[in-house]
Structure formats: C-alpha cells, structure tokens
Design a protein around this nucleic acid. Structure first.
Lengths: 241, 241
DNA sequence: CCAAAAGTGTTATATTTACACCCATGC
DNA sequence: GCATGGGTGTAAATATAACACTTTTGG
C-alpha cells in the first residue's frame, strides 16, 4: 500500500472517538429585499475581539441533526419562518477562523420576504438588524468572506432558477421584479425586453388585480406559479434571465 | 431575546469542548477520462457492511489542516499528483450515514489526466481502480449519492469554465476535445460548429504539431493556454460551450 | 484502393439588443 | 396639469443550428 499519510478506513474508529473531532457550526446569510436594496440579517456580536462588529446568524450543529436541520433551526429562531428557500454554499475550515478553537462552519444562504409579520417578530430581538449589503464593509470572524461567497452563489443562481420570487411579496408588479434583478445583479435591464422575456417564459399568473393607491397608472399584479414552472422544467425548459 | 433553541455564541465554548463535536472527513470524486469514457477512481471497501462495494477516496480531516488540505492530501497519496483541479461540492451530514458513528463529510471532486506515470503509480495499490461512471450502480456508504452530486456539479462547471483540459493530455486534437465534451455531457456536438466556437474563443495554442502514427489523416495538436484565458477573462469574456 | 478521421462555408432560424411614445392615476 | 411609472412593437445585429464533400494518412 502506498497510501502515504492517508489512513485506512478501519483505523478511523479510533480517531472518531478522540481528538480528531471538531465542532461544526452553520452560518446563515439571510437575504431580504426592501426599499430597493438587498439586505442581510445580522446580529450584534458579543464575542471578543469582535464586540463592535455584526455577525451572521449561526449555531453549533447538534448531535441529532443534519447541517440542513441546524440551518433551518437558526432561521426559524431568528426570523420566525419555517418554510424558506435555503441553499448550502461552502465549508470554511481555516484553522484560526474562530477564537474559541477549531470550529468548522457550513455556510448557507436563504431568501426571505421582509414583510410586516416578520418585522413584528424581529422587534422582539434588539440585537438583530437588516443591513443593506452596500453598507457592509466588515463583519466578525470570517463572516465577510462567507457573506461574499454566498452573495456570488446567489447572484449566479438567481439567473438560472426562479428563486428571486422568494424575495418579493406574493403579489408583485413587473417593474418590481425588474428592479429586484437590477439591484441584486447590479445591472440595468430594458423594460420592454424584460417583459417580453417573462412573457415568453410563461411562469407568472396574471392575478387580474391592480396596484392600489399609487400616484400613477396602477400596474397589473402577478404571482409566480410554482406548479406551472415545475411542469415546464420537467419538459426540458430552462429559466434564464 | 427570542432566540428559541439557538444558543448565544458565548455559550458555544462549553459545547465546543464536549459532545457537540463530530468527526469530519473529506471524500473525493476523482474523475479521469480514458478510452472515450468518464471514469472515477475508487477503492475496495473494507468496512462492514460494505465489503463488496467500492468506495470513494477519503480520510478524516486532521486537527491542523483545512478540509481543502485534507482533500489535497488524499489526492497526493492516492494519485501521486500534487497540482490537480479540486473543487469543493457539498456537505453530507445525515445522522446514520456512517456505521462507526457520526461522521460529517465534505465532498470534493477533482479532474486528473490518466497518463502512464499515473498508472505506474497506481499499480502499487491493488485496491484502487478506475471504473467507468456508466458501470457504477452502487457504492459504499452514501458515496453513490455523493458521486452523483459531484458529477452534476462538474457537468455544470465544464460548460462555463475551461476545466475540461484537466482531463486531457497536454497536447490534444480538436476531435479529442469534442469527444470529451460529448462523453461528459452525454450530448452530440456538430464538428464544424464546435470548431468555429473554439476558434472564436481563441484560448488554444496551435502547437504546429501533428498526431503521429494514426491510420488516417493526422490532426493538428493544440494545448490550452491558461495565460491567454486569464487575460481574456479579466477583460470580461466568458467561456461557454 | 479502402477505411478512418481531418478539415472546411453557407444559409436559415432564433435570440438579443436598441430604442420612443402615449396612458392612467393621485395630487 | 403635472409628475410618476405603466404599458406597448419593430428593425438591426448577433448567435445558433443544420448540413456534405474533399483531403490525408496507414494498411
């Protein structure tokens, strides 16, 4: 055998029960969209030397749960939502990344609707804040790196999967949708071309409703039709913006 | 605070030093291309109840290394290569995934050139085998799931990044390159359109050499020019096949 | 001379881009 | 009546897809 320093799997049993173990955490980059800005939910950090920084929301992974479970638990506890879009992104395992010792973290991102219910829930926790991505120049630990990794993945995914709707209210206008893409991807889109494209995709349900109380011609409201999308996906069509 | 069952970060210190720890491993899906087939490098599994299955190559992550380090170590030990394309894919943390207890694994895939040097290295380890993806119907542990996850990610990435060259010899013909894409992506490509596209990308170096000793008109040989690609990438161009 | 792969252009179709005006509402 | 965003079509440019024959080599 020329396995070098790589152990045979049978030798693992000793290592699994000793100092080869590490603490595992999850960190969630929770994206929201409000006021024409992409924001993330962060917490005041209370751990030295990061007392004056914000940190991502995370927790240790418990012995009886998967990392996905842990991320869902964090989301539920911090946002009140149970059914949110959640995506695993990347593992961060640099040796000195955490002051308390070796903690390997699995980064997740999620997309949520910032609505009034949610904001009411938030008020109960004075340490939580929605901060525009643009205003964030540093975070505790390696969380700034983690945030950027999640942002890049989200920007990639939002172009090829209909996940942007998770950031909007159930009912939205086409301009709202366009602005979302412009803000998230930091690009400009042509109104007519954007509408033609969405029309061609045929995954929006026309709600036959109008915006109310706007000081301009009211827009038609739409919702994303997950069922239609799933059918179309199966018959080999691809969302692409 | 309404953090529910989510701990404050200051309470972690006790958990990090007790039973909240887990064993972390890496598992590598090592892709190679040979004989017009996509293959992966697997090992005989010696752990019950999987004695008659193959398993991926992996190891426990040591206390003084990152998961990337661990994956590189596994690759070096098993293939002899130190500089290989390596990509982190996904964490697998189902509670019962490993018979010895809780082991959370980070999946990686890598792309290597199956050449004579490598095959000579391999001969020293009778437990290692190159098996065509098409022939694999099951693997030990959850390794079949892991393999598929890595395969899907590799198929996605090979379309938008010039990583396929890692699977070919340094010098290759355009038809070899086309066949690689056809095999990996399970599609058919038009010879003339494929050549036009590559010509337009302008990232191949014409080596002014010909195939030797083939019983048909010899093809021109090319190599991938990483420098030219990097320059083009910076000035905002995108590889897309 | 036969088998095998190399190499090469054109046309039709689909997709993408650029662009400007009238409409409905609240104040 | 004015400010604000809503809503609509066309033409040019670009990218993609389909397709067949001659060339060169080894055996």
């Amino acid at each position: 055998m020329t396995t070098g320093s790589v152990q045979n799997i049978n030798t693992w049993i000793t290592q699994i029960n000793n100092d080869f173990k590490a603490a595992i955490s999850v960190d969630c980059v929770i994206f929201g969209y409000d006021d024409d800005a992409l924001k993330i939910l962060v917490s005041n950090c209370d751990m030295p030397p990061f007392e004056h920084e914000y940190s991502l929301l995370g927790d240790i992974v418990h012995p009886d749960e998967t990392t996905d479970d842990a991320a869902k638990r964090v989301l539920q506890a911090k946002t009140g939502f149970t059914d949110v879009f959640l995506e695993q992104v990347e593992v961060f395992s640099e040796i000195g990344r955490h002051p308390l010792g070796r903690v390997i973290t699995v980064a997740y991102y999620s997309l949520i609707k910032i609505d009034d219910d949610h904001l009411a829930h938030l008020e109960k926790d004075a340490f939580l804040h929605w901060v525009p991505i643009k205003d964030i120049t540093s975070l505790a630990f390696d969380h700034y790196t983690i945030m950027h990794s999640c942002l890049r993945k989200m920007q990639r995914q939002i172009r090829s999967q209909p996940i942007g709707f998770n950031l909007l209210p159930k009912k939205f206008s086409l301009l709202q949708l366009q602005r979302l893409y412009e803000v998230v991807l930091e690009i400009e889109l042509d109104k007519r071309n954007f509408r033609r494209k969405l029309n061609a995709l045929d995954i929006l349900r026309d709600l036959k409703e109008m915006e109310q109380s706007v000081s301009h011609r009211p827009a038609k409201l739409f919702s994303f039709d997950e069922n239609i999308y799933q059918k179309k996906k199966i018959s080999g069509f691809s969302f692409d913006l």
